[in-house]
Structures are given as C-alpha cells and as structure tokens.
Design a protein around this nucleic acid. Structure first.
Lengths: 347, 347
DNA sequence: TTGAAAGCGGTACCAG
DNA sequence: CTGGTACCGCTTTCAA
C-alpha cells in the first residue's frame, strides 16, 4: 500500500499521485478523480515518515510540559494545539513529570523527529540541553526558563510581582505568620517562585514564613500541608505554588477541622478552572494560559513567510483574583498551636 | 548532520555508524569510541523518520482519547505511556474533544505514522472508521466501543452493572426522584450509559428520572445541573455521568444553597482523584484506569515475540465507592463519613 | 499535464 | 569486524 501501487492502479506515475495528494492544481480533473478512486479503493494512507523525509520538513511542532495532569499545562498545550491545527500543523506532546532525564529524552526525541518548532513549558532546563537545542537550529520557545538566545524565544511570568501582590494582600488582612507550599521541582534548587516568596517576605520585616513541599498534585498539596501543620507552626495563611496543590491543602485543612478562611487563609496560583469549583473558591493569581499558548504558536509557526512574530522575550504580568479562601486574621488566633489529634470531620 | 557526515568524520562507513547507533556488538571498541566521539562533536541526532522508513517499523504506539482534560482519560494515557516506555516504545497522543471529524483525522494520522499499535479510548466510533482501521492491519484496542473483530481487542466496562449499583443504593436510601447529568457526547445517540440509567430506573417502578447534558467539564456539569434544577423538577439525588461533571454539579448546588447530601445526594463515576478532594467527597463508581492501561499495552506491544496477550474482549466490573455526597432522603440521620478504599457492594 | 529519476537519511544484507 | 549498496515511500526537479 504505497504510492506505486496506487499509481499502477490509476495508470499514472507516482509523481502524479503525489501531486494529487498535495493538491497540486496542475493535475487534470479526470486524472485526479481516477487517482482519488484508486486511493479510496486501496484504502491508501500516505506514509508520513517518508513524506517528511523526502520533504525535509515536518509540519509538526513539539510541546514538552512538566506535568500534563496539572490543568495549567494542559490549557497551554490545548491552545497551542488549536492554533497549530488552524495553521495546518500537527503537534506532538511529551510529558516529563519533572524528571530531568525524561526532559533530555523528550528533547532528543523532538530533535529526532525534526519538528518545525519546539515549545518547552518546563522548569529547570540545564545549560547543556539548551546548547544542544541551539545547535539543532530548531525554533524554540522556553516558558519560565533560561535567558533569551539565538533562535530561542523566552516567555516568563513576573512571579516576583505576582507573589508580591499575594503577600501584600495577606499582610493587609493582618496575616503575619505565613506558610508556603511548593512542589518538589520548585523547592530543590534556588527557584524563582521560592525566591519570589522569600524576597517578598523579606521586604516586610514583621512577616515570617515556613515552607514545605511535595508532588505537584492534589495529594502532594495535601501532604505538604500536613507536613507544614504538623510541626506546630501555626500559619494564619498558606500560600500555595499553584491551584492544584492549594486544593489539596484545602482538603487537609478540612480534615483537621480548620475553617477556611476563618481559621486559615489559602491562596493558589494560575487561576485554573478548578479554583472556581472547590470550596471555598480560591483566591489566586491569574496567569493567562491561552495568551501564552498563542504567543508560543506565533513564535514557532511562520505566518506569511516570515518566522518569529514575537521578540526574544515576553514578560507576563500576573493579576490577583480575590475569592473566598482568604479573609482577615481572627483575633486571638495569634498563638494557637496546630498540634494534637485531628479534629473529626463534620458535614 | 546525517549519518554520512558522521561517518566521514570518524573515517568509517555509514553502515558502521548505524551499527554503533543500534548497539550492534560486532563493532570493535576502538572504532565504536571513534564514532561516538564524532557523534558527540557533531551533535548528531538520528532522523527518526528515516529510521522508521528504512526499518519499516515504528516502535511507537498511538493513543486517542476523547478528552484529556478529564483525569479519567489522562490516567489511562499515563499508564500506557509508562508501560510503553518500559518496553522501549514511544507513544503519540491525540485528543479528539469528542469531535467525530477529529477522531477520523487522528486515526488517519496514526495510520500515516505507521504506529505499531493503536489504543482508541473514545466514544462513538463509526463503522467505516473501524473498517479502515481493520484494513490497516494495525493492532487496535478499543475501549468502550464496537464489537471484537479481527486484530481488534475490546475492553468494555459493565456500565449497566455500575449504574445499577448506584441506583439500587440511592433507592435503598429512599430516593425516588432522580436526575441524570450526562455530557453531550453521551446524550446524543442512543448511548450505553444513558441506556444503563434508563434500564435500571425502569426496573424499579417507583423511580422516576430526568436528564440534562452539557460539556464534559466542570463548567458543563454545573450548567447541566442548572438546567436540570431550573425546570422545577426537584430531584433528591443527581447521578452524574462522571466525577468531573459531578464536581461541577456540586458547585451549582452550593450556589443555590442546597446542601449535599442533606438536601440532594450526588454521585459521580470513575473515582478519579478529584472525587476525594471536593466537598463533600464524592460517592462514585470505581473504574480501574491503571488496570485498563496495562491491558491495553499488553494487547498492543509484543512481549516475547508473540503479540496479543489478552483475548478479543475484556469486561471491567465497576465497584461502588461510598463517600459523603450521598445520604438518606429524610433528614436527621447522622451520616458517617466513609473514606478510603472501595467498599464492596451487594445491593 | 505527466513521467522518469535523483535524492532524503537510515537499515541491513552481502562481500571481503 | 567493516564497507558497499540496494532499498524504504515520497517529493521534486527536469524533460517531454
């Protein structure tokens, strides 16, 4: 089932079949329909590998994300896919689960596939990998990582500002003892979000903060909250690295009989849909994921013959979204311990 | 940057470079290291398209799902990916968003890529598509669709039984006026889940049910609940087609000031992680997604030279999981929270 | 408007 | 152990 068989059946050359397949308008209508018929009858499906090998191009862009399970990444991915499809491109996705080896493997895979462009929406890309990518001459967009560079576009969120808004807001509500819940990938090396929190806290002398971290999942958020609370440190507000972990934390607080926001305030980050469907709804920071997806596609897919539409660096300014999970500090909560047996659940 | 350039630099033939790349043990150590060095220096990455074209095989399996945003599909996908990687296979994913044209496009894409196997975890595959797939001689696993067939393995969930368990349980709690929330893809044609609900309800004369449907998302579930409730029909229990829509429904009930389960009971389906992180936690039906993923991989990837490990059809028996979102119709009963592993059901 | 043929970048068989 | 070379299936000049 290859071009030749189709050609034989339609009594034309493989070149002509190829033309039909690619909508070359030069083919005579009668010939075209004869070929179409043969294709139909043979249930012929062109071999895409052969196609991109011969053509030299691939018409597909690669997307690498840290954790597709987190809607934040999924939303970006989905936007990229929509835009790409609209422009006749396919997209292949790879999920690294925050594993560095997997990232390396995925990048190599994408290079091997000769993708037309690559979006890396991941944390922590090491320098040699970036080097490797640069050599490959593939247009790349990094989100949240590294510095602008030859044939590389960078998108970064101004976490500092986002976190600052959260912390100023909590401070204005009277909170002084804060907790921060990260996820492993974000607490390991000196990390931007972590740093943003410490910096913002450092700017206000009366504030103190302690941190805990676990996986970037609902369960991870719950576990991190458990860790944070079981030390006896009784934060009046918990800042979570994102909405998913925040929802996990919410569940842990509920299990312990702590009311949100009366006893503890909680904030998320990203403003994924779920943040409007948990209870209480989550005060969070909006990151425009669709916008980011669009920018990525614009930078990766040539529009009208010309390539990159965006400059080498794009900064996203996050906005605070107030909902029900935050409130003023209750009087008298100043020295309450967070130890002892969990309070039974109530309905 | 192709084989030839590497060969030239290492002063060997392309055949030898190929041998090195494929770990052929016949290569002399000194030669091998010389080649490796050249590969390294040139930052050479083999062209995967050329590779699979020449080799005739692809070492990748395709996965098509209806809605990756729903953790149900994601969990299956993730399991498949893990298993596949463990056996040296790549996986390419396609998301149809329940759009039939997208399904067709995705299937063609997979055939074009000459995948070694294809998993279709989607609803509503039309017959001609199945035909097309059969002709392609690609090993296929269908979840939830169609009948067993040549080179096609089928996995299906016994929805009838699952729904029956839910309805019997609700009936035993005194519920008589039920609501069912589906999603568009599931309410359109005569559908299995829908039918399961109607059948089960029909079996108990005192029961009545009304339905509503919207998208398979949190927002869709909320909207469907809104539709259902705004008719004035006051169900005492709402059965949702899955956990995501159930969480959406939960939010709508909360907005209306209806308490769950005191005023209205709610059930989900699938038992995704989120069902333990919403409030109240969701009574649902467990579908073993990892198990399904394993079965799919076993059927698609040749183990020790032989192909399909599973027979042509596998039936999954769902189990009821009791949590906090369901309770008796009459108020005044102290509902005990049921947590943890699935509770065996008897009905 | 159509056909013949030269690649595209590997793999694998056959010699040596 | 290594080199030469015929494909794999399709695209793309170049002629006809």
């Amino acid at each position: 089932m290859n071009l030749e068989q189709v050609a034989r059946r339609a009594k034309v050359s493989t070149a002509t079949v190829s033309r039909v397949l690619n909508n070359a308008s030069v083919v005579k209508t009668s010939t075209r329909s004869r070929v179409m018929k043969a294709i139909e009858e043979l249930r012929y499906h062109p071999n895409l590998h052969a196609r991109s090998l011969a053509g030299g191009k691939s018409k597909t862009i690669g997307v690498i994300v840290s954790n597709l399970e987190n809607p934040f990444f999924f939303d970006i991915y989905k936007t990229i896919e929509q835009d790409a499809h609209a422009r006749g491109y396919e997209v292949v996705m790879a999920n690294t689960d925050y594993r560095p080896e997997q990232l390396v493997a995925s990048v190599r895979l994408m290079i091997g596939r000769r993708v037309a462009g690559l979006a890396a929406v991941v944390s922590e890309v090491d320098t040699s990998l970036i080097e490797e990518l640069t050599e490959s001459r593939i247009p790349v967009v990094f989100y949240d990582v590294g510095a602008p560079r030859k044939n590389i576009t960078n998108i970064r969120v101004n976490y500092g500002r986002g976190i600052e808004k959260v912390i100023n807001y909590l401070h204005s509500l009277g909170h002084r003892r804060l907790g921060f819940i990260g996820h492993h990938a974000v607490l390991g090396p000196i990390n931007e979000r972590m740093r943003a929190v410490l910096d913002a806290v450092g700017r206000i002398p009366t504030l103190e903060v302690r941190t805990a971290a676990d996986a970037d999942t609902l369960e991870g958020g719950r576990q991190a909250a458990r860790t944070l609370l079981s030390t006896g440190y009784g934060p009046t507000a918990i800042i979570c690295v994102n909405d998913i972990t925040a929802v996990g934390a919410l569940q842990e607080l509920r299990d312990r009989g702590l009311r949100v926001p009366q006893d503890v305030s909680v904030t998320g980050f990203d403003n994924v849909k779920l943040s409007e469907f948990c209870c209480p709804t989550l005060t969070t920071v909006h990151i425009p994921r669709e916008h980011i997806g669009h920018i990525i596609c614009d930078a990766l897919i040539p529009q009208h013959g010309r390539a990159a539409v965006t400059g080498p660096e794009v900064i996203i300014e996050p906005e605070l979204v107030l909902r029900d999970s935050t409130g003023p500090v209750a009087a008298g909560w100043a020295h309450a311990p967070a130890q002892g047996p969990p309070v039974p659940n109530r309905s």
